[in-house]
Design a protein around this nucleic acid. Structure first.
Length: 737
DNA sequence: CGCCGTACGGTTTTT
DNA sequence: CCGTACGGCG
């Protein structure tokens, strides 16, 4: 491989970033500056020019999708030898390390990876054990706090130390119990994957040294989104040689809520004083108008360092701002523009993306696109592996692999219904606890007793169950044991098929659900995925299938080439680019999201999110808002997003649908007449500051006329939070600034 | 034990 | 608006 090919077409800064083979390197890069390209070329350069075997390189990306893209690029440059590269998310890299060496810190080889739903089940269990009221302390909130602790590498004991407030004291106790339950189930949650790997490296010099010696080069993409634990891990890996290359853009940091810590970028230069810093400031993606508008939005942030970003592209088209009446009209506008772009221009559907803040917003768009017969592809949403029927089948497979997985057992012990209800389960649980054995072992004892056919009127029954329940338990144990026996010799897809047949799962779906047919199709799709593992030895197939299911959440790879409009959240859009981008829902309360109002840091993150969305566009950017929007069944009028106001007016073309037209619409015969809430009658406008004698000061989120009264939603500072108040009862006072 | 109805509560972003 | 939790009935 000649360097001319690897370095071809790179600008001087990119070239420098590729060629600096030794030592720590920090690449700070704006959107569209070719970050991914630089990493891919750097890997190729290391292999082809410096002579590093790909096996000795570890490259970390933020998503699995990015990893696939990276691999494709490297393979294009180097050929098939690139496959021995260790490439993936931090989570998948750690999973592989822990599979190989986790036993040294007591993690069983076949550990399960628990997703958010599993974690909640476990947390509820922990709270029940500790007699903590889940209404007062919401499992979600407790788990989020624990996640933050883990991402800073705080063990339960360490966390307990630093706790002052009552809430955190409760969290600390839950953390301890939750962690114990995870261990009992031989399971790790996402944060454990990172934290336990760090612990493994801390506790075993031998293991750490082995990986340090194997990985001569460490590369990390999207470095602005790493958390403390991930950064510590990266430093451990690069500890010997210091060949660590990180690439990031502080302006695109949008995962602080997931404990991503921008200080990692600052600390990098402190931790590696000899680090070289390369700036990639030329954008190859967006037109100047798009770049300038995005810059106008991001430059309002105070916690930010100004940086240069330029393009050789022309000014291009102005930003199109459109104000729709409601989300239906917003979708109509998007659909109409898409039609125009495709029929009259040279755009394909696949060149176009619609981006939004919350997944719920995709609904209105989908309805319209479906009606207008515009092909679309929804990214994310209810993810495939989160569907009930898919999770059921996976729970069976997990049990086959590890019958002591209490969460999976609880999920399917009575699915399809087989006569093991809550009462039976509670008795079993109590009995297992008194014997100090796992639930499944207790069930096996019940099954044994049943098969021995204890005579009627048996004195001292070996278990507390009624004969009927005991029989049901025995047949479940027989079902699972049958599957476990098959697991050793059948291919994965045959195993799944057997599980489906033994449980009569299809009949269950069709009989139980109105959309049973559709659900069965999802099961069929899962079967297709499973069959891709048929080439592996049975045990290995099951293990890697379960791991991929837990870590690879996107299954939509194959229809990526389909020519369809992409519907995607702003978060998921990171790293992607499209010729045409619509950002919809640019309203106060949505983008920026209402949950970010009381914290300036969070507000800055919303701004970065908007920036990320805008800079996805290559040529044409639409920014759309709706005057009214239905949220959770209610309709509310929201003012335009502050981000719209920050756009330089000379770069924008505006189409007003709202002001003049709204009243005409209300007067005329329209679907909108059903809701005669007239905003001018509202006592408060969104965004106004108000005071309440009990809740203190706050900001009006919305004010809607309901019958003879008005409903005012106020986001109060401090503990009161967001409150819905009736105007006639609430003594609200306007604060004038 | 399972099914069906109703009441209620929670609502961002994701590996 | 959605999904879930709970209570009463077969």
């Amino acid at each position: 491989m000649k360097p001319t090919i690897i370095l071809e077409g790179l600008n001087p800064a990119q070239r420098e970033a590729v060629e600096l083979a030794e030592g720590p390197l920090l690449i700070l890069a704006g959107p569209g500056s070719g970050k991914t390209r630089v990493i891919a070329h750097r890997i190729a350069y290391l292999v082809a020019e410096v002579g590093v075997h790909p096996y000795r390189i570890v490259a970390v990306t933020f998503t699995n999708k990015a990893a696939r893209e990276m691999r494709d690029r490297v393979v294009a440059l180097l050929g098939e030898s690139a496959h021995s590269l260790m490439l993936g998310t931090f989570h998948s890299v750690c999973a592989r390390i822990l599979r190989a060496d986790g036993e040294k810190i007591g993690i069983g080889r076949g550990f399960a990876i628990y997703d958010e739903a599993d974690q909640q089940v476990l947390m509820r269990q922990a709270m029940a054990d500790l007699e903590v009221d889940p209404r007062r302390f919401q499992p979600r909130a407790v788990l989020a706090t624990i996640s933050r602790a883990k991402s800073e590498l705080a063990s339960p004991a360490a966390y307990m130390q630093g706790v002052r407030e009552y809430f955190y004291e409760v969290v600390a106790r839950c953390y301890e119990r939750y962690q114990a339950l995870l261990e009992e189930n031989n399971a790790l949650d996402f944060d454990d994957l990172i934290m336990r790997t760090v612990v493994l490296f801390r506790e075993s010099d031998e293991v750490l040294r082995r990986y340090q010696e194997r990985f001569l080069h460490v590369l990390i993409d999207e470095f602005q989104d790493t958390n403390v634990a991930q950064y510590v891990l990266a430093r451990q890996l690069a500890g010997g040689h210091g060949n660590i290359c990180v690439v990031g853009d502080p302006d695109q940091s949008i995962y602080a809520w997931r404990s991503a810590d921008l200080r990692n970028i600052l600390n990098f230069e402190r931790d590696y004083p000899n680090a070289r810093v390369v700036y990639l400031s030329q954008s190859y993606r967006s037109t100047r108008n798009i770049l300038d508008s995005a810059h106008a939005v991001i430059s309002v942030n105070r916690q930010r360092k100004e940086k240069e970003l330029w393009t050789e592209k022309g000014a291009g088209l102005p930003i199109a701002v459109y104000e729709a009446y409601d989300e239906a009209e917003e979708a109509d506008f998007v659909a109409a523009e898409v039609q125009t772009l495709v029929t009259s221009g040279d755009r394909r559907h696949g060149d176009i993306a619609v981006m939004y803040r919350t997944n719920a917003q995709s609904r209105a768009l989908e309805e319209t696109l479906l009606r207008e017969a515009i092909p679309y592809r929804l990214v994310g949403g209810t993810r495939f592996y989160e569907r009930r029927e898919v999770k059921d089948i996976i729970a069976y497979l997990r049990l086959v692999h590890n019958p002591y997985d209490r969460v999976s057992l609880g999920r399917v012990i009575n699915v399809p219904a087989r006569g093991i209800g809550q009462k039976t389960l509670a008795e079993l649980d109590g009995w297992a606890a008194s014997l100090e054995v796992p639930l499944y072992l207790a069930m096996q004892r019940v099954a044994e007793a049943v098969s021995r056919e204890a005579p009627a009127g048996d004195e001292a029954a070996p278990h507390p169950l009624a004969p009927r329940s005991a029989k049901a338990v025995a047949s479940f144990v027989a079902l699972l044991e049958g599957l476990r026996e098959e697991a050793g010799r059948l291919s994965l897809s045959s195993l799944v098929t057997s599980a489906l047949e033994r449980t009569a799962y299809r009949q269950y779906l069709l009989g139980q659900f109105d959309d049973g047919e559709e659900r069965w199709e999802n099961v069929q799709e899962l079967l297709t995925v499973a069959s891709e593992y048929d080439g592996l030895a049975p045990e290995a197939a099951l293990l890697s299938f379960l791991e991929d299911v837990a870590l690879v959440t996107d299954i939509d790879e194959y229809d990526e080439r389909a020519d369809a409009v992409t519907l995607i959240t702003l978060h998921q859009a990171k790293g992607l680019e499209f010729s045409v981008v619509f950002i919809v829902g640019l309203e106060e309360g949505l983008l920026p999201h209402i949950r970010s109002y009381d914290d300036p840091a969070q507000m800055e993150e919303e701004r970065r999110l908007c920036y990320v969305g805008m800079t996805r566009a290559k040529e044409r950017l639409y920014m759309v808002r709706a005057f009214r929007r239905h949220l959770m069944g209610m309709s509310a009028a929201n003012p335009a997003s502050r981000f719209l106001k920050d756009l330089p007016s000379e770069l924008v073309t505006r189409r007003e649908a709202v002001q003049e037209e709204v009243e005409a619409v209300l007067r005329g015969p329209s679907r909108l007449r059903k809701e005669p809430a007239v905003p001018s009658e509202a006592a408060f406008a969104a965004g106004e500051r108000v005071r309440h004698p009990r809740f203190g000061e706050g900001i009006v989120v919305s004010c809607t006329v309901t019958g003879s009264d008005q409903e005012v939603v106020v986001a109060f500072q401090g503990e009161a939070g967001i409150k819905k108040l009736l105007l006639s009862f609430a003594p609200l006072e306007r604060i004038h600034i």
